[in-house]
């Protein structure tokens, strides 16, 4: 088993993935590092990848002139980042800035989409995992937006 396969096997996101599906993933993946302060992607850029953070953390920001960046969410160890690669027009909606030096596995979006189309069982497994993460993020985001700690008016 090569390094990348071992890494993917150890990620909770891929828990229960069949070996042949892991092999398909590995074919689209590479390891990367990023330094704190750098950007993984910017709002409006083409979304060609998704990330699995192995170490460090990355924040998702919206920047407004005069207000500075608003951090929407942070993503850290063992969490996936980015789903804009899944759907047209494949465009990022946030700025992703590295907060703490990060190590991650980067997946090529086009490569994955092609494999999903060819192997719907693989595709379904992958989409199931993304759907779950999306649901969790939306739930957490609604409570975050409620501003539950603030003074109610």
């Amino acid at each position: 088993m090569d390094d990348l396969t071992r890494i993917l096997k150890g990620l909770p996101f891929f828990e229960g993935f069949a070996d042949e599906h892991l092999a398909l993933l590995v074919g689209c993946a590479r390891n990367e590092r990023a330094t704190a302060g750098s950007f993984l992607f910017r709002e409006g850029q083409d979304a060609t990848t998704f990330y699995l953070i192995r170490e460090g953390s990355v924040s998702l920001n919206i920047h407004a002139p005069g207000q500075g960046p608003l951090i929407v969410q942070t993503v850290s160890e063992n969490e996936p980042l980015g789903w804009s690669w899944l759907f047209p027009p494949y465009t990022w909606h946030f700025d992703a800035r590295v907060e703490q030096d990060a190590r991650m596995v980067v997946f090529d979006g086009l490569c994955l989409r092609t494999k999903c189309d060819k192997d719907p069982v693989f595709g379904y497994e992958l989409i199931k995992r993304f759907s779950r993460i999306m649901t969790q993020r939306i739930e957490a985001l609604s409570f975050q937006l409620m501003d539950v700690y603030g003074e109610r008016s």
């Binding site: 704190a36 953390s57 924040s59 920001n61 500075g68 960046p69 608003l70 951090i71 929407v72 969410q73 942070t74 850290s76 907060e99 703490q100 957490a140 985001l141 409570f143 975050q144």
Partner: peptide, 11 residues
């Protein structure tokens, strides 16, 4: 979150 905060943002 705000500028200068490098910790977690999220509920």
């Amino acid at each position: 979150g705000m500028e200068g905060w490098h910790g977690n943002v999220g509920f």
